[in-house]
């Protein structure tokens, strides 16, 4: 990890204020000449250092919500606040990982992880001068996810799970306060996926970032989250807010407890098909 002096500004903001807040966020698209409402006045807030998951039928607008937070998609109706400020574009304190790890094939693992530091200020300015420290930080991250011996490997030499780990490291290297994850483990096999849950939980606890995960896997959402929001089919709204009060750190054995099963059934009941 980079030391705290390098951390993004804004840490001083009120700790009790939600770090993210969606207020009456709506989205409409013109399709075949008809206006389609995708998101219908969605409001919810995410507390600092919380782990929040979004689940819901496909096409209900989960990716869209993440893209709004990342500043990739402008919010036209309603407002998304980051630390009390409306989001108007990309923020350097946001890291993002997609289902497809999209590593740059011409860079090795280490170089891929370092990419954000070449772009985001103040790291960009200091990159040459602090190269050694940045490299060390990237190596530390890679070690946490078990890729210590794969720094010099190119993406085509890594398995799907390894690429996704590298992609997570890239999302975290510039110490974002918010980590956005869009079905990051969707393409992995069941066993690898469970390993990734434990790894992600460890990373999240270590970095104390706020995480927002989109997933189709209800067990994944339960394993990782403090709060799960279930979105209804289009025009979507929040159908259920489920608090998961299982103790941390969570273990795979917990997935077989009655409590876990009870939460799972509760969640399942509220998911509707489109």
């Amino acid at each position: 990890m980079l030391d705290s002096q390098l951390a993004p500004t804004g840490q001083a903001a009120d700790q009790r204020m939600p770090i993210l807040e969606f207020q009456e966020v709506s989205l409409e698209y013109e399709m075949h000449g008809r206006r389609m409402t995708i998101l219908d006045r969605i409001s919810f807030a995410v507390g600092r250092s919380q782990f929040v998951s979004l689940v819901g039928p496909s096409g209900c607008g989960k990716t869209t919500l993440l893209r709004m937070v990342s500043g990739l998609l402008p919010v036209e109706k309603g407002t998304v606040y980051f630390q009390g400020q409306p989001i108007r574009g990309p923020l350097k304190s946001v890291g993002i990982a997609f289902q497809n790890p999209v590593l740059l094939p011409w860079r090795n693992t280490l170089q891929n992880v370092l990419l954000p530091l070449e772009v985001v200020q103040p790291h960009k300015r200091q990159f040459q001068e602090k190269r050694d420290r940045y490299t060390k930080a990237a190596q530390d991250l890679l070690r946490t996810v078990g890729l210590a011996n794969f720094q010099k490997h190119y993406p085509w030499q890594l398995s799907g799970g390894m690429r996704q780990r590298a992609s997570l490291c890239r999302a975290l290297i510039h110490q974002p306060e918010v980590l956005l994850l869009d079905e990051p483990f969707g393409a992995l096999d069941a066993f690898t996926r469970e390993e990734m849950w434990e790894m992600l939980q460890a990373l999240w606890q270590q970095t104390k970032c706020t995480a927002m995960l989109v997933t189709h896997d209800l067990r994944e959402a339960l394993f990782l989250s403090d709060v799960i929001y279930v979105l209804s089919p289009r025009p979507s709204n929040i159908a259920l807010e489920l608090k998961v009060n299982l103790p941390r750190p969570r273990t795979l054995e917990m997935c077989f407890t009655d409590e876990f099963h009870h939460l799972f059934t509760e969640l399942r009941k509220h998911i509707h098909r489109n």
């Binding site: 990342s70 990309p90 350097k92 993002i96």
Partner: peptide, 9 residues
């Protein structure tokens, strides 16, 4: 791939 960079500003 472009989104990864755009999201970083």
């Amino acid at each position: 791939m472009q989104d990864v960079l755009k999201a970083l500003g």
